[in-house]
Amino acid sequence: MTKSELIGQVSEKAKNFTPKDVEVIVNSIFESMAETLAKGDGIEIRGFGSFKVKERAARKGRNPKTGETIDVAAKKVPFFKVGKELKEMVNK
């Protein structure tokens, strides 16, 4: 399922909204989540899961093609932990 398919399915169920409204809301949800993670804050969606930001320290890396040593800068990566309800739904 892609984002546009998601918008399509939600639009079918949300009869009193135009597909355009649903599209704006869906895009806003994930933009707002991305902004929260960008600030370094976590997200918790009950029954779905939580997102946390993990810090990766700077390290020396190697270009696998040339063997050259390069500096990999410290970075933040998102980490998802599935919620109990969804975990059980997926494993049924």
């Binding site: 399922m1 892609t2 984002k3 998601l6 399915q9 939600v10 169920k13 949300a14 909204f17 409204d21 649903v22 809301i25 869906v26 949800i29 994930f30 991305a34 969606i45 029954g47 779905f48 309800e85 969804l86 739904m89 997926v90 049924k92």
Partner: peptide, 23 residues
């Protein structure tokens, strides 16, 4: 609508189907 969005994603995953949210 926000509630429906997460419910729809959950039910899609429960079917074993992947959900791709571009960007």
């Amino acid at each position: 609508v926000v509630e429906l969005v997460f419910e729809t994603i959950k039910h899609t995953l429960a079917k074993g189907e992947e959900v791709k949210l571009s960007s």
